[in-house]
Design a protein around this nucleic acid. Structure first.
Lengths: 257, 257
DNA sequence: CCGCTTCCGTTCGCCAGCGCACATATGCCG
DNA sequence: CGGCATATGTGCGCTGGCGAACGGAAGCGG
């Protein structure tokens, strides 16, 4: 429990809270290990805990009747998993899955609801984050409709990178295809192009991004929008005294609109 | 202003509030006319008023750089327009457009924020509604990826019907195509099939649904999910004393999951 | 070192939807 | 009633992505 304090500041949402609010939550936060592929929430099942990822990414996945799936949002240490629990719906028609091994801080639903009511800064931060998620989902919808697999893959890689501390990720083409809701072959082809363009490099479930800027060129405008809105909505909530705890979250891009 | 009370109860979100909270808002609500095609919020511009539709539908539209567009959510008298204003982001990268002539109640941003903080029931209702919107957007994303234009058109018609008091709507194929993010010809073809199947009937910008059940058969599972979650999330907030004011909102379907 | 599983590469036929072009048809307005 | 803008119908070639099938290749465990 001693390392709890250190760990909590690694989640940007928590790190951005004023000390007083943070202190209110702190005793109820519990560090838990998440394992690759672990289902955190099942579809339409009440969410009993909320999770604040520290060093792993969680995907919100829609699964259709015919087995097809589609990632609608990804959550890293910039946010939290379990919004339905604060919104009052208690559950969602989507599944939450950990995309890698790592840790998260979890808190019981009731405790969090309580804090949400009493701590205005927490409420504000969560609501702003929630808006960021909405924008992410909406942009995904648009992207699904209008952009090619190659563009979507680029966007997805960039978004993943923003939520990881390294520029390497462990996912097979098969797994990525389930996220983007396309065929495995489609990913193989698109990834092949990116590799030939020396933007990425991969082998048997390990992908490394070696030219991030090129990836940004190849991605559609969706990435830029999501990225911009995400920083806009998360930044202001973080007091100056706490900056420096979330380097990994900040994307490297610098372009205007 | 005398008819204000009557009108307010025609918006389900307001109708569901306890009298005390409703009374707090009431003096600040102002009836405004919305005209077909009117832009209520422009992209990335601060939202200064929130709107509670009474007898018209508002679309949230994403517009891409190349001019393509895509409806990500539709809002009728079951909800409100202007969530970004309560979420703290103040604006969204999408546009809000009125889809027909009608009325809405509007309230200044500050007043609503104030009430949101002081009236727990309002807060709860809005948050639950917000979750319903999220689900709608997410399902749209999935639908965009996996389903045919015909299925999507059926879903879209059903969703529109649920938000109108009649089973007739004024939209050209061209306009619908902008909503679904497809070609006009695609809509013409899909609508033609629906008409030949005697599910709908249309002519020059007027579409009438004549066999709703068939439409439900032809739509993808997305409609069912959105519809179910929408009623789940809106229903419980409405005290028994107020029921009967929102017949038009309730869809006619009866199937289980 | 061998065999097996998993992952990636590639091909082929197919089709939904695109973009374009143009042919009607219908209501509206003068 | 006649012209005109708008709405709808239809055809054509094209392409991105699908589904299925199969071959090679890299790791892993025995």
């Amino acid at each position: 429990m001693m390392d709890g304090v250190l760990l909590q500041t690694r989640n940007a949402l928590l790190a951005g809270l004023p000390c007083v609010d943070y202190a209110r939550l702190s005793p109820h936060l519990e560090r838990v290990a998440l394992t690759r592929g672990q289902t955190i929430y099942e579809c339409n099942v009440n969410q009993t805990y909320a999770y604040f990822p520290i060093d792993c990414v969680v995907s919100l996945l829609y699964v259709l009747r015919n087995g097809a799936s589609d990632e609608i949002a990804m959550i890293g240490n910039e946010g939290m998993v379990g919004l339905a629990l604060l919104m009052g719906g208690n559950h969602m028609p989507s599944r939450a899955v950990a995309r890698g091994n790592g840790y998260a801080l979890r808190i019981a639903a009731g405790r969090l609801r309580d804090a949400f009511q009493r701590a205005p800064a927490l409420q504000a931060a969560v609501l702003r984050y929630f808006q960021a998620i909405v924008i992410q989902i909406a942009q995904t919808a648009v992207c699904n409709r209008h952009h090619t697999v190659g563009q979507q893959l680029s966007r997805w890689l960039l978004m993943s990178l923003d939520r990881l501390s390294s520029n390497e990720l462990s996912m097979t083409h098969e797994q990525i295809s389930a996220m983007l809701g396309v065929r495995r072959e489609g990913i193989t082809e698109a990834a092949g192009k990116l590799q030939r363009a020396r933007a990425i490099q991969y082998s048997r479930g390990h992908i490394e991004v070696i030219d991030r800027c090129q990836l940004e060129q190849l991605a559609c405008e969706c990435y830029e929008v999501i990225s911009r809105e995400c920083t806009r909505l998360l930044q202001p909530a973080i007091p100056a005294s706490r900056v420096g705890t979330m380097e990994a979250v900040r994307p490297c891009r610098q372009s205007g609109r």
